[in-house]
Simulated assay, not measured.
Amino acid sequence: MRQRYLALLSVFASLPAMALTFQTRLESIEWTVEGDKFECRLTQPIADFGSGEFVRRAGEQATFRLKAYNPMIAGGSATLLAAEAPWQPGRGDINLGSVKVGSGDVLFNSSQLQAGRLIGGLMDGRSPLIRHYSRDGGVSEVRLLPVSFSKAYADYQACVAKLLPMNYEQVKQAEVGFPGGGIDLDAQAKAKLQVMLSFMKADPTVNHIELDGHSDNSGNRLTNRDLSRRRALAVMDFFKANGVQESQITMRFHGERYPLAPNTNTANRARNRRVNVHLERVAPTDKPAPQVSSASGAATTS
């Protein structure tokens, strides 16, 4: 009897571990769409686990993230699959690569390419499947189902159509060039500033602008310093003409002191004739007084 018991133990020990699967019941599947001008989210809640969520920020393509309130999956790695749906066996799974799993509420964020292929798989009736390998060798699976995905995706696309062209990280800094050597804003410069202005109007928390004017070394230092000042003023005047208060703008000018490239040829000198524009979120108590600063460090209140 003991020999039979040991033999059975040996058989069970040789079998692969069963995967623990998290999946919402078919009749309870739902997709939700939320968003604004800055971000759109397409989410499927996962029973007893958390949710799978496609997130698209303004100016970017979507990523996929897995959120959890269940501590059973944390650390290790996971494989993303566009898996055959349970009711469509025989199609085979598509391996989309691996992701590193963390331990917070958001377990991972996929690449944009992986998210795009997951969306394509959902449109084709496939299931996003996350197969997690813990450090102790355990295997868990989290599955989303494509039920009612097409309707939800149409609502998500409607949200995406209203996103701003850029997000804050993309829009917060810009270089406005003066390639012709003058002080007037050309069409390209105005287009850059208009994008920044539109973002400020959409997000009132972005409430301060810093301007730094620069020149090449073609003239004497006094002339170059004045050119850098007038270029910065041209940018300031653009913002003021479009509703930005002067108290929201800090302006500095540096002449030829900080070149981007050596002033050794025409192309480099054109690069150095510029105004650097930086958008900031400044709390009301932290707002600097409006000022115009010269390259020497002296400042005058405008």
Rank of each mutant, 00 (worst) to 15 (best):
A58N: 12
A62K: 03
G52W: 01
E34C: 03
F54R: 06
T63A: 09
K67M: 07
R65S: 07
K67W: 02
R65P: 02
V33L: 05
R41G: 00
I46R: 11
P71S: 14
D36S: 13
F49V: 14
E53H: 00
N70I: 13
F64D: 11
E53V: 08
T32P: 01
A58I: 08
S51Q: 13
Y69N: 12
R65Q: 15
L42E: 04
P45G: 04
Q44K: 10
E60H: 14
P45M: 04
E53K: 01
A62D: 09
E60N: 04
F38L: 12
S51H: 06
D36R: 02
A68L: 09
E39I: 14
C40D: 04
F54G: 02
E34N: 07
F38P: 01
K37G: 00
L42T: 07
Q61K: 12
K37Y: 00
K37A: 03
E34P: 02
G35Q: 11
T32G: 13
R57Y: 04
N70F: 10
F49C: 13
D48V: 09
A58S: 08
V33A: 08
Q61H: 08
D48F: 14
K37L: 05
K67T: 09
R57M: 08
D48W: 09
E53N: 12
E53A: 01
A47P: 02
F64G: 09
A62I: 05
A62M: 12
K37V: 03
Q61N: 05
K37W: 01
P71L: 14
A62S: 12
G52T: 06
F54W: 03
E34L: 09
A58C: 03
R57S: 13
R65A: 07
T63K: 15
Y69V: 15
G35I: 06
G52K: 06
P71R: 15
V55F: 02
S51I: 00
Y69K: 13
G59C: 00
R57V: 06
P45Q: 06
F64L: 11
A58L: 09
L42S: 03
G52P: 07
T32I: 08
R41I: 00
E34H: 13
T32C: 03
T43P: 01
A68I: 09
P45D: 04
Q44W: 05
G52S: 10
F64T: 12
N70T: 13
E39D: 02
A58W: 08
E53M: 07
E34K: 05
A58V: 04
T32K: 15
Q61G: 10
S51P: 00
G59A: 01
G52L: 15
K67A: 06
C40S: 03
G59E: 07
R57Q: 12
G59D: 00
F38W: 08
G52D: 11
R57H: 11
K67P: 03
E39V: 15
A68P: 07
A68W: 11
R57W: 09
D36Y: 05
I46C: 11
E39Q: 10
P71K: 13
T63Y: 02
S51D: 11
K67D: 10
G52R: 11
